[in-house]
Amino acid sequence: MDIFKIIDEFQKIDGDAAGRLEHASRRFFMNRVSRKLAAAAVPVAFATIVNKAYAQSAKAIDVLNYALTLEYLEDEFYKAGNAAANLIPASDKAIFTQIGKHETAHVAFLVKALGAKAIAKPSFDFTYKGNFGTVFTDYKTFVTVSSALEDTGVRAYKGQAGELIADPQILEYALQVHSVEARHAAVARRLAATVTGNAAMKGWITLNQGAVAPIYAGEQNTTQGGVDIKGLASKSDAAVTEAFDEPLTMEQVLAIAGPFIKA
């Protein structure tokens, strides 16, 4: 979920981080791994490279474990949801089964990268300190929480894309991962719109309409890169905001996800 943040933090502690990972480019894998096996091999090989390059960096280990904690959270959420009796209707079961498989793969990726330094899986409070007491017995609540988690992940990526422009190969790989998370978010939002009866909620974000207020802070912004897009394109506020996402900082992500983690 947080590959952009990981690479950004690597750059802060090692200015040559992109260079260290250059040989992990898509071209490298395509040259050394058959195209048939590339999709499965890339995460494992990339994790091995990260582990070797940064094994002695305490800061890098902290960043990877931060990402792993978030992946543990999503993985456990979908495992519990998919295992709950009579929670997910048959029409939607395949969707959450597939999302769950993706999150399990993300956990495996980070655990491989960290090796013996991977943190143990924490305990989670999926009631969100008592706010979601029916999360695994009420489908409406389950889908709402799923949408919140997925949108949080997508916006965690957003703020880091600019840091990778100088290395387009790494940017390409990271965006491939990000696109999967974005599809999760779009599906979860559409399902949430249906089960909550919120006709204004779609697979994309309009203004700051959403399930959990902190996740959508700033989404109503119509100025991007110092340019008032509304004035430039002569479009409505709704149309302009649908064309752009806003970033979430690490602090914002932790503020949203923190109540799920038991102290």
Rank of each mutant, 00 (worst) to 15 (best):
A213D: 15
G159C: 09
A211S: 11
T222F: 06
E181V: 07
G210Q: 10
E219S: 13
V195W: 10
L207F: 12
A174H: 11
H184A: 03
K202L: 10
G226D: 10
T194C: 01
T223W: 02
A233V: 12
D237V: 12
G226C: 02
V177P: 01
V227Q: 04
A185Y: 01
Q224R: 11
A213S: 03
A192N: 06
G218R: 00
A185I: 00
T206I: 11
R189Q: 14
V212R: 02
Q160N: 07
R190H: 06
I215F: 00
N198F: 13
A174D: 05
V195R: 12
Q220V: 04
Q224M: 10
L171E: 12
L164A: 05
Y157I: 09
N208W: 03
A166P: 02
Q224G: 05
L191V: 08
Y173K: 13
A213M: 02
A186L: 14
A217N: 12
T223L: 04
Y216H: 08
T194M: 11
A161N: 04
S234W: 03
G218P: 12
A192C: 07
K235S: 09
A182S: 10
D151F: 14
L164G: 02
A211Y: 14
L164P: 08
G159R: 11
G218N: 08
A156G: 08
A238E: 15
V180N: 03
V212H: 10
I170H: 06
A200S: 02
Q220W: 00
Q209T: 15
N198D: 07
K202R: 11
Y173P: 04
L175Y: 07
G159Y: 10
A200H: 01
G203D: 14
T223D: 02
T196Y: 03
A233M: 15
N221C: 03
I215Y: 07
G197Q: 05
N221S: 05
V177N: 01
N221P: 03
I205C: 05
G231Q: 04
Q160K: 06
S179R: 02
A211C: 11
A233S: 15
A233E: 14
D228C: 07
D151H: 11
G225D: 04
G203I: 11
Q220T: 04
A156M: 02
V180F: 00
I170E: 09
T223I: 15
S179I: 01
E181T: 01
I170P: 02
K230Q: 15
V180T: 12
H178M: 05
K158V: 12
L207H: 10
Y157K: 00
Q220M: 05
L175T: 08
Q176W: 06
K158H: 00
G162A: 00
I215C: 05
R155W: 02
I229K: 14
A233N: 14
H184P: 05
T222N: 06
A193P: 06
R190M: 01
E219W: 13
S179P: 03
W204C: 07
G159P: 13
I165C: 06
V187G: 03
L175H: 06
V187A: 07
W204N: 15
